[in-house]
Design a protein around this nucleic acid. Structure first.
Lengths: 368, 368
DNA sequence: CGGGGTTATCGAATCGATTCGACCCGGGCG
DNA sequence: CGCCCGGGTCGAATCGATTCGATAACCCCG
C-alpha cells in the first residue's frame, strides 16, 4: 500500500511543480503505452518486433507509439529485458592485464566482431573476475590467463553449470562445459630459440618472474633445454626476470645488457619484454640487431611498431578467429558442444634479428 | 497457463532424467527458499541485509539458508536486483581508443578506485557509445573524447535527463546535467613549446591529422603561434600529420626526420606520437636528445617507459583524482550538483630534451 | 447472410529479485 | 495476569520489460 502511496505522491508532485523540470525517473514502457493510448504489449512489439523481423503492429499505431516514445524520451530498460529474455546482447572479456598488447589485440578483435552482430563488448580488467562475473550479466564471458589451480577449475565448472557460457584461453585446461582456446606456445618457443641459435651462442633470457623458479614447464623451459642440447653454458647472469609490467622488463633488460660480458642475443618470453629490450639496447647505445638480436613471443600487433620490427613467434590470424568463436557462442549458446580450439604457432621474422628490414605499411602524410 | 505448463514440464523432465545432469537453469532465490523451508524474503535478507549491515535473520535460520544456497550453487541474478533497486554497482567507461595510453591510465585508475568500493568497472571501446549506453545499465558512465558537435551535446543532455549519471572529459563542454572534467591542454602546449625554444629554432611538429586543417584552435595552434612570435620560419616540410595510431605516427616521424634539412627538435601532440618519434630517431641512427629533442603532450605513464624518458606536459595526479570523481558520482548520485572539475598542466622534464637522465624506479631482478 | 481465416490489439502471467506492512511469539514490565 | 514491545518471518506488491492466448474487427467466399 505504501508503494502505491509513493506512486500517488510522485504523481501529485509531478503535477504540481515538477512538470516543467526534468522528470526524476526514467520513462517506462507503461508510460509510453498510456500516452499513446495502447497496451504495453503493443509498445513492446513496436520496439522489439513480434518474433522475428515483423512487428505485427499496424502502421498508424506504430507511428503513435514512436511519437509518444520520442516525446517522453523513452529507451527500453536493459535490465528488465535481460531478466525476462535471459539474453543481454553482451560479450564480456575478463583480461588479466589491460596494458598487455596481446589482451588488447583480443579485445579489439572481439569488439569489432561483436559490433558487427549488434552485441556490446564489456571489458573487465584485473579485479576479482569471479565476483565480477556475478555482477554482470553477459551472454558469454571470455577469460584470459585464468589460473590452472584446482580452485580455478572448480569455479569455472560451477559457472558453466550455472548456465554461464564461457570461453577460456588456456594452454592447459580441457573443455568442461566451456570452450577452451589453446595456442600452445611451446613449439613456437623452440622455433624462436632455433632461430637465434642459427647465428648466436651467447643468448640471454628475459623471463616473467613467476616462471623462473616454477618447476612447471613454461616459456622459460625451451631456453634451458635448447642451451643444454647445444652444450652451451647457461650463464646465470644472462637470465633476468621481470614482474608483469613493461617498465620492469625494461629495467631487467638494462641490467642484462649493461654487463661486461653481455649476451649477443635475447630470448624474451613476451613481445612487450622484447620491445623493452630493444629500447634498453638503444638507450645503452647498442644497435639492434648488430650488437644484440632480440626475439619476442606472441606475435602481437606491437611487434610491428618498434624499430627495427620485432622478430616474434605466435599464432597467425589468431585474434580474428578467436573473436569469431566467442561471438558465435554468444549468439547461439548451444549450437555445438563446448570444444577445444587449437592454433598452431609459426615464426615471423623481423628486423630485430635480421639486417634486411621488413617492409612497413601504414598511412601518413607530410605537408607539401 | 502455458508458462505454468512449461514449468511443470521442466520439473517432470528434471525428475525423470536430468536429476543427475547439470541443471539447465540457474537456481533462483525461490528455489533456495523452498529448499531451506523459508520465505523468499528471508533469503533475500540473508544475502543483502535488511537495511544496512544487520541482516535481521536469526543465526540458525541464516545458516540453513546459506547451506541451501551453497548446495544449489546459487548466486543472485544481477539483472533482477538492478531492476528492483535501480542500482547496478557498476561504472562504465566509454573510451575513444583502447590502445591510447591516456585512456588506459584512466581505466586503470578507475578500476582500482571502483574495486576499492565494491563496484565493477566495465570498459567499452570505440563502438557506438550512445547505443551501448542503452544496452548496459551502470550507475555512472564516463565518456572520453566525446565530440563537441551539437548532436553530441544533445545526446548527452538526453542521457542525463533520462537519469543516466555522466562524467564527460572535454576541453570545451560545460556541465549540463552531467559533470565535466577539463584539463585544458593549451597552457601546457605553450609550456612544451617554450621548453623547446630555450635551445632550438628548427622545430618540427608531429600532429594529429584532423588538427592540421581544422580552423579551430587545437594542440597544433601553440606551435604555429610561438613560431610566429619568435619570427621563426614555419617550414611546411617540418610538419607531419598522422592518423590515430602509433604506427602511423611512426611513419610520419620517419618522413619528418629523414629529410636533408631535418628539424633539431620535435613537438608532438601526443605522448605516443612522441614515443614513435623517439623510435624513429633511433632507427635512423639519430641520438636523442643530442641530434633531435622530443617533447610529448599528456604526461601518460608510457612517457617513463621509453629511453630516454620523455619530456612531456600534462596534469599531475590526474588519473587518480579523475577516478575519485567518477566513483563518487556512482556511489551517491546526487550528492552535489554536476560540476566542472579543472586540472592545470605543468612540465615534466625528461631525458628526451635534456642530457641529465632522470631517475627511473621499478622492480627487476637479475639472477645471482 | 453466415462461417472460416487473417490481422491488430489487449489482458495478464511471468522473469528473479527487493521491501513494506502484517503477523507471531516470547519476555519484561506494570 | 495482561499488555506492550520488539526481534524474526512471512505474504504479497513491485520494478520494467516480454510473450502467450484470447478477443475483436474485418475480409473473402460460398
Amino acid at each position: 500500500m505504501t508503494q502505491a502511496h509513493d506512486d500517488d505522491e510522485r504523481d501529485v508532485a509531478g503535477e504540481r511543480d515538477e512538470r516543467a523540470a526534468a522528470p526524476r525517473r526514467r520513462p517506462t514502457l507503461r508510460m509510453v503505452a498510456e500516452l499513446a493510448g495502447v497496451s504495453t504489449a503493443t509498445v513492446s512489439y513496436v520496439f522489439s518486433g513480434r518474433n522475428g523481423g515483423d512487428s505485427g503492429v499496424a502502421e498508424p499505431t506504430a507511428k503513435r507509439v514512436l511519437e509518444a516514445a520520442d516525446q517522453l524520451n523513452y529507451r527500453p530498460n536493459r535490465a528488465a529485458r535481460t531478466i525476462r529474455t535471459g539474453r543481454s546482447d553482451t560479450v564480456q572479456l575478463s583480461l588479466h592485464m589491460l596494458s598487455d598488447p596481446w589482451s588488447l589485440a583480443v579485445a579489439a578483435a572481439v569488439n569489432d566482431e561483436a559490433n558487427r552482430h549488434g552485441l556490446t563488448t564489456l571489458i573487465l580488467a584485473d579485479g576479482d573476475w569471479y565476483a565480477a562475473l556475478d555482477r554482470v550479466e553477459s551472454d558469454v564471458a571470455y577469460l584470459d590467463g585464468v589460473g590452472t589451480t584446482d580452485e580455478g577449475k572448480r569455479k569455472l565448472r560451477e559457472l558453466a553449470r550455472r548456465g554461464q557460457r564461457l570461453v577460456v584461453f588456456s594452454e592447459t585446461l580441457e573443455p568442461d562445459g566451456y570452450d577452451v582456446i589453446r595456442s600452445d606456445a611451446m613449439p613456437g618457443c623452440y622455433l624462436a630459440m632455433d632461430h637465434l641459435l642459427e647465428r648466436h651462442t651467447a643468448i640471454g633470457c628475459l623471463v616473467a618472474e613467476g616462471a623462473v623458479r616454477s618447476p612447471e614447464p613454461s616459456r622459460y623451459s625451451p631456453y634451458l633445454e635448447r642451451m643444454r642440447e647445444r652444450g652451451l653454458p647457461i650463464v646465470p647472469a644472462h637470465t633476468a626476470s621481470y614482474a608483469d609490467t613493461q617498465a620492469n622488463a625494461f629495467t631487467a633488460a638494462v641490467a642484462l645488457l649493461s654487463q661486461e660480458h653481455r649476451p649477443t642475443a635475447i630470448y624474451a618470453t613476451t613481445d612487450f619484454a622484447a620491445i623493452a629490450a630493444i629500447n634498453a639496447a638503444h638507450m645503452l647505445g647498442l644497435r639492434v640487431p648488430h650488437d644484440v638480436a632480440v626475439v619476442g613471443i606472441g606475435n602481437t600487433p606491437d611487434a610491428q611498431l618498434v624499430a627495427p620490427t620485432l622478430t616474434t613467434v605466435g599464432p597467425s590470424d589468431f585474434y580474428e578467429r578467436q573473436a569469431e568463436i566467442i561471438v558465435a557462442r554468444a549468439l547461439d549458446a548451444d549450437a555445438h558442444e563446448p570444444q577445444l580450439h587449437e592454433f598452431p604457432w609459426s615464426l615471423f621474422p623481423g628486423g630485430s634479428t635480421d639486417l634486411d628490414a621488413p617492409p612497413r605499411s601504414s598511412r601518413a602524410t607530410v605537408l607539401p
